[in-house]
Design a protein around this nucleic acid. Structure first.
Length: 153
DNA sequence: GCCAACGTTGGC
DNA sequence: GCCAACGTTGGC
């Protein structure tokens, strides 16, 4: 069992959207580091901190669960999609995605500001590399954030 | 909207 | 392979 943090701008795909959809294809990731995680390391059953970026405030707002291992992101070769990349083809896919489902919202969303104020969370990738949109989280970090968020998983 | 930090591209 | 120029992300 591994733990991750996925970022999304609520204006493009929010936690409410995931609740409505039930399952989401986490498509559109166009960064090689994030792609490598999605392709090989993010696995069914892993738990995901659901993070809203470019929000008021930005922060972790919920927990989701991976329900499908990495597979090619078909939106890359659909040229009318939101994230086309003609370098990626069905024969040689360049980008990957996983599927996730909602688990539970935090009763107390944990803002980035709050996270940065907690010394034990200072080593989070979120704090050290603000831009990575799929990132590993340690079990300790995950459990701390979930507890601060007021829920039991 | 600004801008710092990070990623990517492409000339050499 | 280096690195300058450009593009993107995301906090504020």
């Amino acid at each position: 069992m591994q733990y991750w943090l996925f970022k999304t701008e609520p204006g493009s795909y929010s936690w409410d959207d995931l609740l409505e959809d039930g399952v989401a294809e986490w498509d559109g990731v166009r960064n090689y580091t994030a792609r490598n995680y999605l392709r090989a390391q993010v696995k069914v059953g892993d738990l995901v901190l659901f993070y809203h970026s470019n929000a008021n405030p930005s922060g972790v707002i919920a927990v989701a669960r991976v329900v499908r291992d990495g597979y090619p992101d078909n939106t890359a070769w659909e040229l009318d999609s939101d994230h086309p990349d003609p370098r990626s083809t069905p024969d040689k896919p360049l980008w990957y995605m996983v599927d996730i489902e909602p688990v539970r919202a935090l009763t107390e969303p944990l803002s980035l500001q709050a996270i940065k104020a907690i010394p034990d969370l200072a080593d989070m990738v979120l704090v050290k590399n603000a831009r990575l949109s799929v990132q590993p989280v340690t079990r300790t970090e995950f459990e701390m954030i979930v507890a601060l968020g007021g829920i039991d998983i």
